[in-house]
Structures are given as C-alpha cells and as structure tokens.
Computed example of a mutant assay.
Amino acid sequence: MIDTQAARARHKTRHKARDMAQDLTKALNDHCLWKRELRAAAVYQKRDLPISRICRDDCCAFGRWLHQLPPSIRHSAEAQTVEHLHAQFHRAAGAVAEMIVDGHYDQALSSLATGGYPQVSAALTREVVQWKMKMLVAAS
C-alpha cells in the first residue's frame, strides 16, 4: 500500500512538472510574438498601442500564471529570477511601444534589434529554459 501511494505521488509530481514545463514553453512562444508585433507596428506606423498595458507584467497570461503560482514555487530562486526578468521584458517592450506611439519608428526598430529589448528577451528566454529543464530533471 505504501509503495502504491509513493508511486502515485511520484507520478503526480512528474505530471505537475510536465504541465508547468508546457506552461513555460507556451509563455516563451507567446513572448516571441511581441517582437514581431512591435516590429510590424513600427514598420506600418501603427500608433494606437496600449503602452500602459504593454508595460505591465501582470496583463499577459504568463504574468498572471507567475503571480498565481503557489508560494512554495513562486518564492523559489528560479521563479523570482524569471518574474524579475519578465517585468523587465515588459518595461522594455513598453519603451519600444512608446517610441512607436511617439512616431520614432526607426528608433523603435533599432531598439528591437540592438537595444535593451533583445538583451532582456534573451535573458528571460535563457532563464525560463533553465527553470523548465531543472523542473523536468527533478521530476524524472
């Protein structure tokens, strides 16, 4: 009986880790779209961007997911690092959106290519992938 309970617990832990890994993969995919959308807004001079919403890290599905994690996970070093970088990512995206709204299209395109946006985006991606791998290894 105890072995069966232990086996069920391990299975549940593995399943939960896989679910969280899938959530992290979806978050990465969703955030990769930001660069494309911001670039298109700059190229086509779309100035009606919701800057205040773009700047916030709790308005996207991943931000809400991060903020709703159980404290045991949310207070982990990995989650804290990802949450911090996710907030920086949204501030960087908001800065690019502000350039677009202000009509500084070339500056926005340059910032997407070489400014703070690609740096924080790469850092966020790296940390999410590391967190995901650590989670999957721990569950195996």
Rank of each mutant, 00 (worst) to 15 (best):
L69V: 03
W65S: 03
H75Q: 14
R36L: 13
H31N: 04
S110E: 08
C59S: 06
T81I: 00
V43S: 01
H86Q: 11
V101C: 13
D102G: 02
A17R: 00
R53Q: 15
M135H: 00
D106S: 07
T13L: 14
R53A: 13
P71Y: 10
V137C: 00
H84V: 07
I73E: 15
W34A: 07
V96Q: 04
D102H: 10
V82S: 03
D23T: 12
A41G: 02
H11W: 13
F62R: 00
W65K: 00
Q45M: 12
H90I: 04
L38N: 06
H104L: 14
M135C: 08
A40T: 10
I54G: 01
L49Y: 02
D102M: 05
D48G: 12
M20L: 13
A122Y: 11
A21T: 04
K16C: 10
A40Y: 14
P70N: 15
A7Q: 09
A97G: 14
K16T: 13
R14H: 11
Q130T: 00
H67R: 07
R126T: 04
Y117L: 05
G103T: 07
C32E: 13
M133C: 08
C55I: 09
H86A: 06
R47E: 14
C60H: 08
V129T: 02
Q22R: 13
C55E: 13
L69C: 10
V120S: 05
P50N: 08
E127H: 07
Y105N: 02
A93D: 05
W34H: 07
Q68V: 01
